[in-house]
Design a protein around this nucleic acid. Structure first.
Lengths: 144, 144
DNA sequence: CTGATTTCAGCTATACTGACATTT
DNA sequence: CAAATGTCAGTACAGCTGAAATCA
């Protein structure tokens, strides 16, 4: 009982928003156990995948505000997951680097995300999951 | 340039969250022009699809808090989109009904959602859009 | 001096919590 | 009396804005 309105569920845009929010919530719940949030995970992933960044470049890549990035990095640094050093070549910039501990933490976070994923995608077969991933990837890269 | 980390884009759970957030944002942007938010649209849709509700039932169906529903309905009522009347059979309850103006507003909102949808789903063919919708619907109904 | 980078303080909106009045 | 419904005030957090400090 208590079904959702068909006027909404017939809209793909609404379903994307709703299913996405659900995924976000479950993911955040898991990450909270480790005192981390989604942005922490995204930040560690960017540093691990692309190497050290100036703080501003990091914020730009993840599309968050530099002021929020400052707080995020305060927290990650406090947990020993990143280090911050002035760029000797341009002392305005702060070079952010992921530590080995940060890489370990990221691996653990990815494990959590995969566990959540198994729960969310339970209704789908393996082939369907691959299909969905491919479609979402195109939506993600397509418009921006 | 400024690509997203593969560690994240290889996670379906992350893509769902990200693409969903994007859809949500675009949708909210359009609705804001009409001084409405997503919850207003969901509320109008529930009333239009399922008929009048007690306020608590409405909140339960949409999974939002009764205190927030009070504010939402204040706003919808101020715009003449819903009416609130005490249930004569049980005077604790407030029966909420969508007005003709509310139905018109909902139709306009759905038009906006479909426009956003066309933009978001631009990278996909018609068949792929249908496929995606079906998969999302199963994810939505499946776990809850 | 102008512009870039980072930091900090504060504002707003959303989701949630708890207390209360009314009614059953 | 206990339970249900709706209202209101207040909290917590994410996202955003603007100002100041440092440096090129």
């Amino acid at each position: 009982m208590s079904a959702m309105p068909p006027s909404l569920t017939s809209l793909t845009s609404y379903l994307l928003s709703k299913v996405g929010k659900n995924a976000r919530g479950l993911l955040a719940e898991r990450l909270a156990v480790k005192e981390l949030r989604l942005w922490h995970m995204a930040t560690l992933a960017a540093l691990a995948d692309f190497g050290p960044h100036a703080q501003r470049d990091l914020a730009q890549r993840l599309a968050i505000h530099t002021s929020d990035m400052t707080k995020l990095l305060d927290e990650l640094a406090a947990q020993g997951h990143v280090t911050r050093d002035r760029d000797p070549a341009d002392r305005r910039k702060v070079l952010v680097t992921v530590t080995p501990a940060g890489r370990d933490a990221l691996a653990a976070l990815i494990d959590e995300a995969e566990a959540v994923q198994d729960a969310i995608l339970a209704p789908l077969s393996t082939d369907e999951r691959t299909l969905l991933h491919g479609l979402l990837l195109r939506l993600h890269d397509g418009p921006g």
